[in-house]
């Protein structure tokens, strides 16, 4: 999955010469937390609600109100911003956000701002990957972490004519093993479990009935 697949293409921006008050109002009106800042049509920086909050106690005292209204976005924004490319893999973009502890990445292509990727987009992506998109049952098998085992379990499922909706393969708690967690499009995975067990694999789910 690429950044282009999950980013938002409707981006609310401000300009370097806009007042900070205007930026604050925009964040509140649009109910967003990140504002890419443009200088002409070039991306110059990023302004977040956190930048505004962090400066508040110092700046927002009464004698400073006047100064605040004169302050420009370009004086407060983070620059240069950390950006992503639409063809970056989602996992790389997520790593950037995690490592730099930031909540969003403006997406830039050939110098132009084409979208924005926020932590909400990443979480939605995770929910969809881990979640269940179509009626299906869970089948969890532990296999040795060597070539061929995913294929042999998958071919059992194929032989039953059952569709695989998703599969994730996290490392197992057991050293040298891997978990295969399938969602398979059947209400009754008992026979598939039996056939997989017959191949010598340990089926963790569904459990045996007493």
């Amino acid at each position: 999955m690429l950044v282009a697949d999950i980013m938002s293409t409707r981006v609310v921006t401000v300009n370097v010469s806009d007042s900070l008050c205007h930026a604050l109002a925009t964040l509140q009106k649009e109910r967003i937390r990140h504002l890419p800042v443009l200088d002409g049509d070039r991306l110059a920086g990023i302004l977040t609600d956190r930048d505004l909050r962090d400066m508040s106690p110092a700046v927002l005292r009464e004698e400073n109100i006047e100064r605040l209204s004169k302050l420009r976005v370009g004086e407060v924004m983070k620059s240069p911003p950390i950006t992503a490319h639409p063809l970056d893999p989602v996992e790389d973009a997520a790593r950037l956000m995690y490592v730099h502890r930031i909540g969003c990445l403006p997406v830039v292509k050939e110098g132009a701002l084409v979208g924005i990727l926020t932590e909400t987009d990443i979480l939605r992506c995770l929910v969809e990957l881990m979640g269940v998109s179509r009626p299906s049952s869970r089948l969890e098998v532990v296999v040795p972490d060597t070539p061929g085992h995913l294929a042999s379990v998958a071919s059992v499922i194929r032989d039953f004519g059952v569709n695989i909706i998703s599969v994730i393969t996290p490392a197992s708690k057991k050293e040298g093993f891997r978990s295969l967690v399938f969602r398979i499009a059947t209400i009754d995975p008992r026979q598939i479990k039996q056939a997989v067990t017959a191949l010598g694999y340990e089926v963790i789910w569904p459990p045996d009935k007493r």
């Binding site: 269940v132 179509r134 009626p135 299906s136 049952s137 869970r138 969602r183 209400i187 569904p206």
Partner: peptide, 9 residues
């Protein structure tokens, strides 16, 4: 819980 039983929703 749909994590463990059909249909998942």
């Amino acid at each position: 819980n749909g994590r463990y039983l059909f249909p998942g929703s």
